[in-house]
Amino acid sequence: MSEFPGATMRADPDRVDLDVVAGFVAPGARVLDVGCGDGELLLRLETEKGVDGRGIELSQKGVNEAVGRGLSVVQGDADHDLATYPDQSFDFAILSQTLQATHNPRTVLENLLRIGRKAIVSFPNFGHWRIRAKLLLNGRMPITENLPYRWYNTPNIHFCTIYDFLALTEETGAGIEAAVALYGRGRALSERAPWPVWNIIGEQAVFVLSKR
């Protein structure tokens, strides 16, 4: 199991998935980042890879910061605003750490696959052993470093495990082009590790999908 390149250099080790996501994006591509926050990933992709980037972000603060950085970002959310984008209008439609906060993850995923030639989705794995252990031993909704909210104030209303996500890709007819599971401080699990190992060791997963 190798350390993912560049991963340990990040100021925010919780968002190491962004390094992985960025690694999958081809130079010069047209990119839509759904839930782009203050535009950190978009800015990086524009600077490092010369992509033509657009973003969607819910918070006014995030949008203002992103637009202030010269990025093209629309205030909106994945549930309501993806429908207005035409088919195959982006090379990559990215949804990082946002799927679990959407009202209708299946529709969101279908829209991503429709809008982008490829969809890149990263999400926290609720099947991770530490979460399972906390639920089993404490009998209460788990609070972890990655998922620091209580059950009543969490924006994350639709948690899933890697297994659940794999099932959703089946149901939506999405093909898996690449996948990475991250554990510890941004280490990537071996690609040869079987799904059960991913589902119990992986803290976050990043999938590159396309419509089959």
Binding site: V63, L71, S72, V74, Q75, Y85
Partner: peptide
């Protein structure tokens, strides 16, 4: 829908 480059706040 027109694929334009747009920001909105």
């Amino acid at each position: 829908a027109a694929g334009a480059n747009v920001s909105f706040v």
